[in-house]
């Protein structure tokens, strides 16, 4: 490699990192930040200190897992019961990462890079990456995702700290609207990021089965809804594909 080629690669690597940073400053990023405004209020109400709330944002990152952990802390759960509840609510991270890794990996990507980047996987960065990584050259995808994931995580640690420090109690109407923002945003972005109709079908099944199993099997609601919804959507998809191989 000549020195000038090397400089070119360096420049484009920085360029793709910055492209990832820019992808974080987007409508999805803004909505996620609003959800973290709601989380900062929740953490404060639960009696966490500002340092604990910011630390929790950085090390857990996935918002549903944090809400579960704060709930366990408020109800006085033991560390084992809390860990169990958080682990159950986070099983979904494994299939999300399994789906993302083959998209991110280039020919010379180290395993360690993927392990470090996987920490940034949560719904927003996953949806954004699955949507946009196809437009990024394969060797630059981990760089792009590093820019996206680190900006979202660090940015929202700042959001939680600032909102915690400044927040008076929000008016209840605004607070309700903030709590509604997350599901409606996930609803539209998850639909928009689906690759095949099997995924759309799985989404509809999950939406219905989640609340059903929340009543029937409260401890394992997400797990049951995810596996049953996911497997049946896939089974229907394969049956139809087999019958009509042309499509």
């Amino acid at each position: 490699m000549t020195p000038s080629q090397h400089v070119d690669i360096q420049r484009s690597r920085t360029g793709w990192y910055l492209a990832g940073v820019r992808a974080a400053f987007s409508l999805p990023g803004l909505i996620l930040a609003s959800s973290f405004v709601g989380f900062a209020a929740l953490a404060k109400a639960a009696g966490l200190t500002i340092a604990q709330a910011v630390f929790m944002t950085g090390v857990i990152w996935a918002l549903p897992a944090k809400v579960v952990l704060v709930g366990a802390i408020m109800s006085g759960s033991s560390i084992f019961a809390a860990a169990f509840a958080v682990a159950l609510s986070s099983v979904r991270l494994t299939p999300m990462v399994v789906a993302l890794v083959p998209e991110l990996r280039g020919s010379r990507t180290r395993q360690l890079t993927l392990y470090l980047l996987s920490h940034f996987v949560a719904i927003t960065s996953w949806v954004l990456a699955m949507e946009r990584v196809g437009d990024v050259p394969r060797d630059m995808r981990t760089t792009f995702y590093a820019g996206l994931g680190s900006t979202l995580t660090l940015g929202n640690m700042v959001v939680v700290g600032v909102v915690y420090a400044l927040s008076q109690k929000l008016p209840p109407e605004i607070s309700a609207a903030l709590f509604m923002l997350t599901p409606i945003y996930f609803l539209t972005s998850l639909w928009a990021s689906a690759r095949e109709w099997a995924t759309h079908l799985a989404m509809v099944m999950g939406l219905v089965l989640g609340p059903v199993f929340h009543v029937v099997l409260p401890e394992f609601d997400l797990l049951a809804a995810g596996t049953i919804g996911g497997f049946s959507a896939y089974a229907i998809f394969s049956l139809v594909q087999r019958r009509r191989p042309a499509t």
Binding site: R92, M96, L190, M203, G210, L223, Y234
Partner: peptide, 21 residues
């Protein structure tokens, strides 16, 4: 990976459904 995506999507959708209901 199609199956992995349907399971991951159904799990996230279940979170959404619970957040609304």
């Amino acid at each position: 990976l199609v199956l992995v995506r349907t399971i991951a999507t159904a799990l996230v959708a279940a979170v959404i459904g619970n957040l609304i209901i």
